[in-house]
Nucleic acid binder design. Structure first.
Length: 324
DNA sequence: AACGGTGTCAACCGCCCAAGG
DNA sequence: GCCTTGGGCGGTTGACACCGT
């Protein structure tokens, strides 16, 4: 059937926006308390641009809440962590970084962060070390990034909900716990989670031969849950340990990793051969496990530093040469 | 100074999806 | 239920800046 063009391109201007055009667009949106219909905006505002172009210019550049300037280390860390969970869902990632646009984050990823991960010997697509391309499930192909991400999300969601449920039933209302330990649920209820729920539907379609979500729920104890624990307030961590055995398991998973053991071995049903149980998720885990206020200097520009840090902390099993 | 290589980022393109008729 | 439309998203492109030779 085909899609009709968003607008009649004839006579419309393309390319970089001038200061005058910017001014017209900003004034129009200000004076009309919003953009209204993007399609009709250019005509009403007197711009020789297509509506899409106006929308893009506004959302990526002219919006008053845009934060310009270089990304901070915190922001970069967050982007890496979110990318590990969400993949190339730039809009969802951007929703967690106030003032940053999806375009900006996408550019940052493609020009900097991707190279840094490559430099560390980590596949930016899967967040796994390149060396761990052995999939114990032999014939089955490696899980797709989206499936893995879904698995982690679902697992984390179930864990968080279960924990909350336990907390509320055992201790009654615990506002401080709620505030501190619900990073995931906040995320889940945000645009990020929303977008992921949509993805999950898609995942069910493409993975109809099995149930990736349920498999994931039972098998990824060491999944993104450990990312949650990094957000737990130390003041409440002890309480959580007494509250839920799952938290203990999470901590155990982390200690396994730090001891260099195959942490997936502690999974409840590690003997099954489904894709979600792939134990080669260490790189992603380590990325996710980095406490948000840890020093991430290993991600800085100097590739030799990455190599050293990665060799030391991440890729103990493999030596690699920084390609850059 | 000229040139080529590389990096950056704003902008465009095409697809997808939800809403509405 | 089908079709059209508008908006949003992710991938890609191309202009420009910078740097080394």
């Amino acid at each position: 059937m085909g899609r009709t063009p968003c607008c009649d391109k004839r006579g419309l201007k393309k390319g970089p926006w001038t200061a005058e055009e910017d001014e017209i667009l900003v004034n129009y949106i200000k004076n009309n308390n919003g953009h209204g219909s993007w399609r009709s905006l250019p005509k009403l505002a007197g711009l020789l641009r297509c509506g899409k172009s106006c929308r893009l210019r506004w959302t990526n550049y002219l919006r008053p809440d845009i934060k310009r300037g270089p990304f901070t280390q915190e922001e970069e860390k967050l982007i890496i962590q979110l990318h590990g969970m969400l993949g190339n869902r730039w809009a969802a990632i951007a929703s967690q970084l106030p003032g940053r646009t999806d375009n900006e984050i996408k550019n940052l990823w493609n020009t900097h962060l991707k190279k840094r991960l490559l430099c560390m010997g980590i596949d930016p697509l899967t967040h796994e070390p390149f060396s761990s391309n052995h999939y114990p499930t032999t014939k089955s192909s490696p899980p797709s990034p989206s499936t893995r991400h879904m698995a982690q999300w679902e697992s984390a969601r179930l864990e968080a909900e279960a924990r909350l449920s336990r907390e509320s039933s055992v201790f009654g209302p615990q506002p401080h716990i709620k505030a501190n330990s619900d990073f995931f649920l906040r995320l889940w209820n945000s645009e990020v989670g929303d977008s992921f729920r949509k993805l999950s539907k898609f995942g069910e379609k493409i993975e109809c031969h099995s149930s990736p979500i349920s498999q994931a729920s039972s098998s990824t104890k060491c999944g993104s849950v450990s990312a949650l624990t990094t957000e737990v307030d130390p003041n409440t961590a002890g309480l959580e340990t007494t509250v839920g055995s799952q938290v203990e398991e999470m901590e155990y998973c982390k200690s396994c990793k730090s001891n260099g053991e195959d942490f997936m071995a502690v999974g409840s049903d590690s003997s099954s051969s489904n894709d979600m149980e792939d134990s080669s998720d260490t790189a992603l885990q380590l990325l996710l496990d980095f406490p948000i206020n840890n020093d991430m200097s290993f991600l800085e520009e100097n590739c030799s530093d990455y190599g050293a840090a990665a060799n030391h902390a991440i890729l103990s099993e493999s030596s690699f040469i920084c390609p850059l």
